[in-house]
Design a protein around this nucleic acid. Sequence first.
DNA 1: CCGAAGGGTTGACATATATCAATTGATTTG
DNA 2: CAAATCAATTGATATATGTCAACCCTTCGG
Lengths: 232, 232
Amino acid sequence: MPDSEYRDIRKLDLFAQMADDNFTSLMRGAYVQNFPAQIELITEGEPSDFLHIVVSGSVDLFSTWNGRDTSMATVRPISTFILAATIKDAPYLMSARTLEKSRIALIPSQDVRAIFDADGNFARAIVTELAQCYRSVIKAQKDLKLRTSLERLANYLLRQQRHAGGGAAFELDFEKRRLASVLGMTPENLSRAFKGLQPYGVTVTGTRIAIDNQADLERFAKPNPLIDDFST
Amino acid sequence: MPDSEYRDIRKLDLFAQMADDNFTSLMRGAYVQNFPAQIELITEGEPSDFLHIVVSGSVDLFSTWNGRDTSMATVRPISTFILAATIKDAPYLMSARTLEKSRIALIPSQDVRAIFDADGNFARAIVTELAQCYRSVIKAQKDLKLRTSLERLANYLLRQQRHAGGGAAFELDFEKRRLASVLGMTPENLSRAFKGLQPYGVTVTGTRIAIDNQADLERFAKPNPLIDDFST
DNA sequence: CCGAAGGGTTGACATATATCAATTGATTTG
DNA sequence: CAAATCAATTGATATATGTCAACCCTTCGG
C-alpha cells in the first residue's frame, strides 16, 4: 500500500486516535485492490470476512428480494462500509458493487475485532461511527415514511446543493436511475417528479440542476435537521 | 430501586459483563419512575440527557414531520432506547411515549459515556448493541423499500407468529392503528390488507390471528432471514 | 342503563405510484 | 461512420394507497 493511502486511511475518524502499533498491525493484515466498474464486491447473506474501505471510486450498497432490488446507499472515499456486520461477525445485509473503477482496502474482520479489544480509542471510534451510521439510517427511514416521493426529491436536491457548496446550480452526483432507486421510486417517476418541481423553480439539464427560487423550493420541501442534516 | 429490578437491569446484555463497581456507580445516578399511559417521555430534537430503560410496560418510538407522524418501533421490557443519541451526545431523532402504564429507568447520559471509557466490557457491549440496532433498522428499510404493504403485513404476521411460539393462532401485540403506522400504511389500508390475506388462509377475529394455511402464506410472504430474522 | 368516545371497518372516490410501450438522444463499438 | 446499446423521457394505462364520510361495535363513565 502506498504511503499516501496509508496516511489517508490513518486520518479516518475510525483510525485517527488509535495507537500506532495497533494501526500498523491492522494494516499488516490488510490488502488493497483495484476493481473495475460494476463488480460485485460482496453479496448479502455471505459471512463478513473483511471490513471494506473505499480509497477511491465509489460503491453502491444495494439489496434484493423476490426479484426486486433497491439502492440503499452510496459509499464514497474515504470511508468504510459493513462495519456492523464485521463487529457482529454476522452475514452481510446488503450487497456492494463498484459504480466505477475503484480502489478498495480490505481489513480482515477478525483483526478489527481483536484490535477493538486491545485499543480503547479504537473502540470509542467504532462506537461513534456505528452510532452515526444508525442515526443516518433512522433519518433515511423517516424520509421514506413521512414524505412523498416529490418531497423526498426536493429535499435530496437541497442536501445535494449544500453538499456541492450551496450555489444555485450543481451537478447530480450519480445516474438518475440509481437516484430513483435510492429515493424509493421508479426512473419514470423520478422524471415526472423533476417536472413536478418546475413550479418551484427547479430546472434540469442532463445531470445539471439549477435552483432558481431557493425560497420557494424550501417552502415546499420543508427540510428538517432531524432528517436532512447528515452531520448530527 | 427494588433489588429485583436492579438484578433485571444487570442481566441486560448491555450491562451483564461490566465490572460490579462500574455498574453500581451507573445505577447510583439513575432513577426509576412510573408513568401513566400516553405520556410523552422524550421529544425529538431535544438534547439526550438520559439513557432510558423500559422496566415494565411498553414505549412507542415515533417521529413527526409536517403534520404527519409515524411509528418507528416499539420498545418492550427489558431493553434500552436512544442509545445512539446518548453516545453521540446528539439530539433525539425520535420521540417516545408510553403505550400503557410503564416503569422507566433513566441513566444520565454523561455517566454512560464516562463508564464507557473506563470499562472495556461495557464498551464492547455497547458496540454490539449498536451494531444490532443498526442492522435492525437496515432490515426495516429493506422491508419498506422492497415489499408492498400486503407483503409487509404477511411477513409481519409470520414474525409475530414465531415470536408468539409458532402456533397457528396468536394475538397481535398492539393496536391495529399503530400496527398500520409501523408497517407504513393507513388503518383503512391495513383493514383491507387483512382481507387481502384471506385467500392465503389468514383469519382475523379482533386482535386474534389464525393462520389456517401456513404453507400458502409463506409461499406468498417469502420471508427472508436477511429481512425478517431479528436475532442476527 | 345510557350515551359519549374512540377504534375498527366499509364504500366511494381521489391521488400517488408503477408498469408497459414507444421514442428520443447520447454514447459506445465494430 | 453506422449500427447497436442504453439511459432518459413521455404517454397511456393499471394498480396501490390514501382520504373522506358513514357506520358499527366495544368500552367506559355518569
